[in-house]
Design a protein around this nucleic acid. Structure first.
Lengths: 132, 132
DNA sequence: GATTAATGATACCACAATTGTATCATTTGT
DNA sequence: ACAAATGATACAATTGTGGTATCATTAATC
């Protein structure tokens, strides 16, 4: 029942570091030095972020990654959605056919409420706010 | 990122049905008739609930299950804890060594807040409240 | 131009949790 | 004795997550 998976976690931490370099290009190997994260895995993660327009990449020697947007415009919900799909808490809950008697609707309603709250909270966090 | 797994889901639905029978003994086969849930799986689930003191079982012909407590005293968090373990949202988040620079503490704080909220909401739901 | 250091793309693998199935033993009503 | 139920338990299938490996391509540097 975790809210944030490891690749999201790694992504956020890498983004923090990259953001602190203010436009300088940072390579994966530099990142893994400071980050204690498996290198090829982090590489894959950053490639995805590049594909999604969060990072910009430069190939070749001296290459690496920079932010493609200002930290204030990167929300952690963006990152979560990239690695964890749609942000729904009631995914497999009381599956399709299950609600003929509507007794469970209260539960569903509550969970939808929780979902809204969680999203509102998470949406208030940008990468910038993580740079203290 | 689901809040409730399938076995919890099945358990809750079965509990609703059993509760509606007001003390009458209900067998797994009766339940699966109305519930469209794989029978042996449901059986295993109910056995667990029996072991945890949520249900009481009677063996032999004509046997089955009844509630061991009033619906008002069964919380869905009880059921969730049984099938999903401790209710923590920030489980694997920013693992041990990860927080030397405390930039992530805001995030952690938010998530802890979310966790509290979710628990408070869920703790307000009893089996009784699901019986409409 | 060759080398080297980086990413791009992609396929594969490992492990754990979830979601089940199968079987045999035991109990109990008829 | 038989049938219908649960108890206990071992096994299997599926899926998601976390991670590795490899080859191709790009670009700076010598």
């Amino acid at each position: 029942m975790k809210l944030i998976t490891r690749n999201t976690d790694y992504a956020l931490r890498a983004l923090c570091l990259i953001a602190k370099c203010k436009g300088k290009i940072v390579s994966v190997s530099e990142l893994t030095l400071k980050l204690r994260v498996p290198q090829p895995f982090l590489r894959k993660i950053l490639q995805v972020l590049n594909g999604k327009g969060i990072l910009r990449s430069l190939r070749g020697q001296g290459g690496g990654f920079t932010l493609a947007k200002e930290p204030a415009k990167i929300f952690i919900t963006d990152i979560m959605r990239i690695f964890q799909g749609a942000l729904r808490l009631n995914e497999c809950f009381l599956r399709k056919l299950a609600c003929p008697h509507k007794k469970t609707c209260l539960l569903r309603k509550k969970i939808t409420g929780i979902e809204r709250y969680v999203l509102r909270e998470l949406n208030s966090i940008t990468l910038e706010s993580l740079l203290e």
